[in-house]
Design a protein around this nucleic acid. Structure first.
Length: 693
RNA sequence: GCCACCGUAGCUCAGUGGUAGAGCACACCCUUGGUAAGGGUGAGGUCACGGGUUCAAGUCCCGUCGGUGGCUCCA
C-alpha cells in the first residue's frame, strides 16, 4: 500500500502497487495524457515502472506552450528517438548491427556496425527518416520486457551480436540482475532492442526528429578496436521546437570563424603553405597586434621581462626537456645538419636508422620548437640567480610548431604553427600561490575587457591511479593546493578534474565553446616541478645554499590563433572599435562632398584611427550596406549640410539609422577615447547626452 | 592517423555521360544619388591533381592532395 509524495509535498495513497502512469491517471486525464515518464525517488523511470512501496514521485511531462522542455523529457524523447532511428536503419540496412545509442547534449546518436562494404551516407538520411516517420505515425507503445541474466544471455548468444552481448555483460558486471528489452510495439511481434530504458510511453510522443549527420567512431572509444558508424539525430516533443533548434544551429554556423574570417579577410590557410599553418592577412594582423599591445601593457604592470628566442633549437635541448623523443609523433621531423646527412647517405643509413640515431643522440639535428620553455629556461640558467631576483618572469609571443594529426586540424582553433602569449615564471615555493594568482588576474582582465562571460575554469589534478606523473607526491599535493587556493581568488566558479594535470604538474585552464558547441582550452596556468629538475635550475637562498625554483608556464590567451578564432565567433566579426581592423569609414553623400570627406578622413588618420574613405561609384545606400557587411563600427556620412556646419553624421554598427550629427572634433575625441580605453559607448554617449539615442 | 562525406570562377552554389552556368565580388561606362543592393558592358575556368573506362568524362572507377564532421589525440 504505497504512499507517494508529490513535488508539492502532498501525498497520495494506493491500495496496491501502482505505476507513474497510474498516478498520473489518478490525478487527472490531462496529466495522464501529457506524462512521458517520472522520477521515483530521484530515479528516471517509465510510466509502466512498478511502485510497490512509499516513494517520492515527480511526473515528467512534455512542455506546455512556449515553455522550454525539461531535461528529463528531452532525455526520454531522444533516447526513444534513438530506438526509432535504429529500427529504421535496420529496415533500410537489414544487416546493420546495433551497438549503443544514448542521448547526448543536442540529440542522440546510435553506433552501428555496418556490414563489410556498406556505408550510410547523408543521401540515406531521407530513407531513414521516412521509416522513422512511419514508426512514429503508428504510435506504437514502448514495451519493456525483462529476462533473467541466463535467459537473456542465451537469447543474445542465439542472435549472435557480439556488441549486444558485450553490452549485456557490462550491464551484469555493473550489478544488474536482469536484462531488459524495449519493443516498439508488442514484444515478440515488433522490433526490439536490449536497453535499460526508460522510454516515453509510445513512439508518437517523439513529435519532431531529424537525422543530422554520420560520422565514425570506435568501439569502446578504442582506436584499435572495431570501427563503427555513428549516426547522429536530434528529437524534440514537437516540430516547432525542432525547427527552432535547427534555426539556432543555422545561426550558430553563421558565426563560424572560418566563414567570417574569409568574408572579412582576417586570415587564410593556404594549401600551398601547408595544413594548419595560418596566414594572417592585414586585417587579421591588426586584431592580433592590438591584442598583443593590450596584454603587453598588463605584462609591464606585472613586471614581466620580454625576451625573444629562436624558432629552432638543437635536439639536445629537447632531449633534456624530455619532449624529444617522447612526443615525436606530434612534432615536425628534425632538421639534420647537411654534412651529417651526406655522411649518413654515404653509409647507406636507412630512415629507421636515422630515426634511431637521432633518438640516441648519435646524430645531432635541430627541432622546430614545440614549446618555448626550454629556451626561456636557458635564459634563466644563463646567470647565477639569487632569491632576491625571484620571481623572474620571462615573456615572449613565441611561435611553436606541433605536428597535430591532420584530422584534428580546424580553422584557427587547432593548427600546426601557433604563437603563444607565453611566459615562464621562476619562483620560490612560497611565492607560488601569489604568482599563480597574478597569472589568473591577467586572464580575468582579458575576459573582462572582451566581455567573455561564458567559460569554464578547470583545475587539472593528477589521476591518483596513473603513473605518468613526475615529481614527489608531497610536491604535487602542495602544488595542487596552491592551484585550488589561487582558483578560489578568481571569484568565478571552478571545478577540479582528476587526470587533467600535465605530466609535470597541475594546471588551471580556461575553457570556452565555439559556435558549434565544441570546447576549447584558451588560457592556461601550469605549475612545473619537472623542468627545473631536468635542467638542474637553482637559485641561491638566504642560507647561501642552492635551491630549486618552481616554474609556472602560463599563456592567458593560450595562442593568438585559437584566441582570435574564438574571438571572431564571440563577436560574430563585429569587433569593438579598438580591435576592429577598420574603425571608421567616411561616406560622402556625393562627389560634391568629396573634398570635405577627405578632410574628415585626414583628421581621423592624424588622430591615429584606422579610417578609410569610400568614394565608390555606388549610391549611398549600397555603400552603407557594404560597410555594414564589413562590420565597420562607425560610418561617417558627410554631405553639403555637414561640410557647411563642420559636422559628421554618425551611423554606429548595429543601429539601423543615423545617430545624428556632431562636430568633427567631438567625434575624433570620442573615438580616440573609446579606442584608447578599450571600451564601448563613448561615441554613442555624444548622442545620449543630447537625448538623441 | 582512422571512418564517412565533400572538392565546378575570388566567394556562395546550379549542372541528366554529349558546347562550362548563375548570383555576389572584380574592371570599365552611364548614373552624383542624405542613410542596408541604380543601370549597362566586360573579364574571369586545366571542373583539386594523376591515372583508368568510354566514340565521348565536370559527371563513372582507382589513387593522391585538400576541406568538413566525428573518433582518437592535444607535452
Amino acid at each position: 500500500m504505497p504512499t507517494l509524495t508529490l513535488p508539492d509535498g502532498s501525498t497520495r495513497s494506493f491500495d496496491d502497487a501502482t505505476t507513474p502512469g497510474g498516478v498520473a491517471a489518478d490525478i487527472g486525464p490531462g496529466l495522464a495524457k501529457a506524462a512521458l515518464g517520472a522520477r521515483v525517488d530521484g530515479e528516471l523511470v517509465g510510466l509502466d515502472h512498478v511502485i510497490d512501496r512509499d516513494a517520492t514521485i515527480s511526473l515528467i511531462t512534455g512542455p506546455r506552450g512556449k515553455d522550454p522542455c525539461s531535461e528529463d523529457a528531452l532525455w526520454l524523447i531522444r533516447h526513444s528517438a534513438a530506438h526509432i532511428m535504429a529500427e529504421a536503419v535496420q529496415r533500410v540496412f537489414p544487416e546493420a548491427q546495433l551497438v549503443y545509442g544514448p542521448p547526448v547534449d543536442d540529440g542522440f546518436y546510435y553506433d552501428i556496425a555496418m556490414p563489410e562494404g556498406q556505408t550510410i551516407s547523408s543521401g540515406d538520411f531521407e530513407r531513414i527518416e521516412v521509416e522513422m516517420d512511419a514508426i512514429v505515425k503508428e504510435d506504437r507503445p514502448f514495451s519493456r520486457c525483462t529476462m533473467s541474466a541466463e535467459e537473456g544471455m542465451a537469447r543474445l548468444e542465439g542472435e549472435g551480436s557480439k556488441y549486444k552481448i558485450d553490452n549485456a555483460r557490462r550491464a551484469l558486471e555493473a550489478g544488474a540482475d536482469t536484462l531488459s528489452w524495449y519493443a516498439t510495439g508488442n514484444p515478440g511481434e515488433h522490433w526490439d532492442d536490449l536497453c535499460r530504458g526508460p522510454h516515453v510511453p509510445s513512439t508518437g510522443r517523439v513529435g519532431g526528429f531529424k537525422v543530422m549527420s554520420v560520422a565514425a567512431s570506435h568501439w569502446h572509444g578504442d582506436a584499435d578496436s572495431d570501427r563503427l558508424t555513428r549516426l547522429y539525430g536530434t528529437a524534440f516533443p514537437d516540430r516547432k521546437r525542432l525547427a527552432a533548434h535547427l534555426e539556432r544551429l543555422e545561426e550558430a554556423r553563421k558565426r563560424d570563424h572560418r566563414a567570417i574570417g574569409r568574408k572579412l579577410g582576417l586570415f587564410r590557410i593556404d594549401d600551398m603553405v601547408g595544413q594548419g599553418l595560418v596566414l594572417w592577412t592585414p586585417k587579421g594582423a591588426i586584431i592580433r597586434q592590438e591584442l598583443q599591445d593590450f596584454i603587453s601593457t598588463e605584462l609591464k604592470r606585472q613586471n614581466y621581462e620580454p625576451v625573444f628566442t629562436p624558432h629552432i633549437g638543437k635536439l639536445d635541448l629537447f632531449r633534456t626537456s624530455g619532449h624529444y623523443p617522447y612526443y615525436q609523433d606530434s612534432q615536425y621531423p628534425p632538421v639534420v645538419d647537411p654534412e651529417a646527412m651526406n655522411r649518413l647517405v654515404d653509409e647507406g643509413c636507412s630512415c629507421a636508422d636515422l630515426s634511431n640515431r637521432l633518438h640516441e643522440g648519435e646524430v645531432e639535428g635541430y627541432l622546430l620548437k614545440p614549446m618555448n620553455c626550454p629556451m626561456h629556461i636557458r635564459i634563466f640558467a644563463g646567470e647565477p640567480r639569487s632569491y632576491r631576483d625571484l620571481p623572474v618572469r620571462l615573456s615572449e609571443f613565441g611561435t611553436v610548431y606541433r605536428y597535430e594529426q591532420s584530422g584534428e586540424l580546424g580553422g584557427m582553433l587547432r593548427v600546426r604553427g601557433f604563437t603563444q602569449d607565453d611566459a615562464h615564471l621562476f619562483c620560490t615555493e612560497s611565492q607560488l600561490q601569489d604568482e599563480i594568482a597574478g597569472c589568473l588576474e591577467l586572464v580575468r582582465i582579458i575576459f573582462n575587457t572582451l566581455g567573455i562571460e561564458s567559460f569554464d575554469v578547470r583545475v587539472g589534478l593528477r589521476d591518483p591511479e596513473a603513473t605518468k606523473y613526475v615529481g614527489s607526491p608531497d610536491l604535487w599535493d602542495r602544488a595542487e593546493e596552491a592551484c585550488r587556493a589561487a582558483a578560489e581568488t578568481l571569484g568565478d566558479a571552478w571545478h577540479a578534474e582528476e587526470g587533467e594535470a600535465a605530466f609535470y604538474g597541475p594546471k588551471i585552464d580556461f575553457i570556452v565553446q565555439d559556435a558549434i558547441g565544441r570546447s576549447w582550452q584558451l588560457g592556461t596556468v601550469q605549475v612545473d616541478y619537472n623542468l627545473p629538475e631536468r635542467f638542474d635550475l637553482s637559485y641561491i637562498g638566504p642560507d647561501n645554499a642552492p635551491h630549486r625554483p618552481v616554474m609556472i608556464h602560463r599563456a592567458p590567451f593560450g595562442s593568438m590563433e585559437r584566441f582570435v578564432g574564438f574571438l571572431i565567433e564571440h563577436f560574430a566579426g563585429a569587433f569593438p572599435a579598438w580591435l576592429a581592423p577598420e574603425q571608421v569609414r567616411v561616406l560622402p553623400v556625393s562627389e560634391k562632398s568629396s573634398a570635405y570627406a577627405a578632410e574628415v578622413h585626414d583628421a581621423l588618420r592624424a588622430a591615429g584611427q584606422r579610417v578609410t574613405l569610400d568614394e565608390g561609384n555606388e549610391r549611398l545606400q549600397a555603400r552603407i550596406r557594404t560597410a555594414a557587411e564589413e562590420k565597420i563600427p562607425y560610418l561617417l556620412i558627410v554631405g553639403p549640410r555637414d561640410a557647411e556646419a563642420g559636422t559628421v553624421s554618425v551611423r554606429a554598427r548595429g543601429i539601423e539609422r543615423d545617430l545624428g550629427a556632431v562636430q568633427l572634433q567631438a567625434f575624433v575625441d570620442a573615438i580616440a577615447t573609446e579606442t584608447r580605453d578599450r571600451c564601448e559607448g563613448v561615441v554613442q554617449s555624444l548622442f545620449a547626452d543630447a537625448g538623441v539615442a
